[in-house]
């Protein structure tokens, strides 16, 4: 579903590349942890998938699409095929839980009737149907991240990108978020999650792609954080 073919990314005014000859294949339905220190290239890799950046060399293919060749006006449609969750949740503080999820649908022009039908279903998926009229400030961090995940799911994406989704959460809350991600993965969604969280990675026993200085130093099925590469 996703392939990186000898991909490098060099940002302007930097000496060493953010990504250095990356080769990576991810199949539909995979759950991949992207681990590594800050600055190792995890975020750059996600940004290439989102087409927020374009690879300096090499080819990134998603669902048969050469991402670099995607026309600007086709980028929005492309992004609707994926959901994104951030460490800082990115909820709108003045809007209720329901409105936050609805906002994501409004801006892509979904009709009111579809919003009214779909938002409650999404909130049910993340276990927040009871709190749909609360404001983000009245929710715990874990609940806020669930709202963000409900919003990431409005287009029923085949791919979910999560950039440190548990970075601001305590361990107990993180487990809840991981269970939710696992459920989303089990219904066929590919999940790529960048994280530092050792406990979570070890517990989940999923595929691990470890990065260091822009290179992939380990790619292991059912791996643990602490294990080093071959």
């Amino acid at each position: 579903m996703i392939s990186f073919d000898n991909v490098s990314k060099q940002y302007k005014n930097t000496s060493s590349p953010a990504l250095d000859s990356i080769n990576l294949d991810i199949e539909q339905g995979d759950f991949v942890f992207l681990v590594g220190a800050s600055g190792s290239g995890k975020s750059s890799l996600l940004r290439l998938l989102l087409k927020e950046e374009t690879a300096t060399t090499g080819v990134v293919t998603v669902d048969g699409i050469n991402v670099a060749k995607l026309r600007n006006r086709k980028v929005p449609a492309y992004r609707r095929t994926m959901g994104i969750v951030f460490q800082d949740f990115r909820l709108l503080p003045g809007k209720t839980v329901f409105e936050n999820v609805a906002f994501g649908m409004e801006v892509i022009g979904k009709p009111k009737s579809e919003i009214a039908r779909k938002v409650p279903a999404l909130l049910e998926l993340v276990g927040l149907e009871e709190k749909s009229h609360r404001l983000p400030s009245e929710l715990s961090g874990g609940e806020q991240q669930r709202v963000a995940m409900a919003r990431a799911f409005i287009n029923q994406p085949k791919l979910l990108l999560a950039d440190e989704p548990t970075g601001n959460l305590d361990p107990a809350t993180s487990v809840g978020i991981m269970k939710l991600l696992d459920r989303i993965n089990r219904i066929g969604t590919t999940v790529i999650m960048a994280t530092h969280d050792v406990a979570i990675v070890d517990q989940m026993r999923k595929r691990i792609v470890q990065m260091e200085d822009g290179k992939i130093v380990r790619d292991q099925e059912r791996g643990m954080y602490g294990q080093t590469g071959q």
Binding site: N72, R73, R79, G104, V107, A152
Partner: peptide, 17 residues
């Protein structure tokens, strides 16, 4: 910026942003 970053990430068109 928060609104526009959300809009972009859910795939809102440039014109609607």
């Amino acid at each position: 910026r928060r609104e526009t970053s959300i809009m972009r990430s859910v795939g809102a068109s440039n014109i609607s942003i």
